[in-house]
């Protein structure tokens, strides 16, 4: 059992949680994820590590309540404990000095780009972060992202804050105005990562995406998270989660993410859970 030391509502269905887990924190790096189970009969789900504190051994995660497991996690409070948390999992983000870097985060993908932006900035890159949300009320981590970026740009679908439109519109603007980008990183909904990869492919800009495939053990044991990268089968949990965005079969990923759609509905119904904002 692992103690919850902090819980904070960031927007109407997104929460931040701090969990005491020395074994996760000790070797955590940007881009790693955890697999956790909120309670004993629960499901194992992967969540990206948002931040960690080596002094207190607390790992921070940010999640959106999209199903039974995240909803049950969201019901726990400071002082409660979660049943299981394993990590740090996955290959960490490969950090070096690339030069001009654009880091794109959409919605609940923003917490995942935070440690990557920080590490890239610390490594001497010129980091421009682009955050995309549907509307102003849903914006999270604005100050935090500002602190780890040389420049922060925001897009909202309705134009209530920042540029009206999509993150790809902002990225297109950056590409048009220069200077040339040496690296692009994108984390968010599959449709966003696919759009970013399609855009940067035209300009031959190296693009790393972090894939959110369905996972179970997270150790390479089950193969449930298999994705096709450049025509080859890879496991997101151990070969990734970061892959060359220009090589990913996004359509297959989208399809596989829908494997348990019916069961997810049945599970919510069984647990009498009504998701916020859906």
């Amino acid at each position: 059992m692992y103690k919850i030391t902090l819980k904070k509502q960031l927007s109407k269905d997104i929460k931040l949680m701090g969990i005491e887990a020395e074994h996760v924190v000790k070797n955590a790096k940007a881009g790693n994820f955890v697999i956790l189970i909120p309670h004993e009969n629960g499901e194992r789900i992967p969540l990206t590590i948002y931040d960690w504190d080596k002094k207190t051994n607390v790992v921070y995660i940010i999640f959106q309540e999209v199903g039974v497991t995240t909803a049950k996690l969201g019901m726990l409070n400071e002082g409660d404990s979660i049943f299981s948390i394993a990590g740090p999992l996955g290959k960490h983000f490969h950090v070096e000095k690339f030069g001009n870097v654009a880091i794109v985060g959409g919605g609940v993908g923003v917490p995942a780009i935070f440690p990557i932006a920080r590490a890239l900035k610390e490594a001497g890159n010129n980091v421009t972060s682009i955050m995309g949300f549907r509307t102003k009320e849903l914006i999270i981590l604005e100050k935090e992202m500002e602190s780890v970026s040389n420049k922060l740009l925001t897009a909202t679908n309705d134009g209530s804050q920042g540029q009206k439109g999509l993150v790809t519109d902002v990225l297109q603007g950056m590409i048009n105005s220069g200077p040339k980008l040496d690296l692009c990183v994108a984390v968010g909904p599959v449709i966003m990562m696919k759009a970013v990869a399609e855009l940067t492919r035209n300009y031959n800009i190296k693009t790393i995406v972090s894939l959110n495939a369905l996972m179970m053990d997270g150790t390479g044991m089950c193969g449930g998270c298999r994705v096709t990268i450049g025509g080859k089968n890879k496991f997101s949990c151990v070969d990734g989660p970061d892959f060359d965005g220009h090589q990913v079969d996004f359509n297959e990923l989208t399809s596989r993410l829908g494997t348990f759609k019916e069961e997810e509905k049945a599970s919510l119904h069984h647990s009498k859970i009504q998701l916020v904002g859906r």
């Binding site: 009969n41 194992r44 069961e263 599970s267």
Partner: peptide, 19 residues
Amino acid sequence: TRMNLLKAYLFPEYDTPVK
């Protein structure tokens, strides 16, 4: 693993599904 470790055969009493 879904069946034996996570008891998906008892879904939805247990949260892990199997289709």
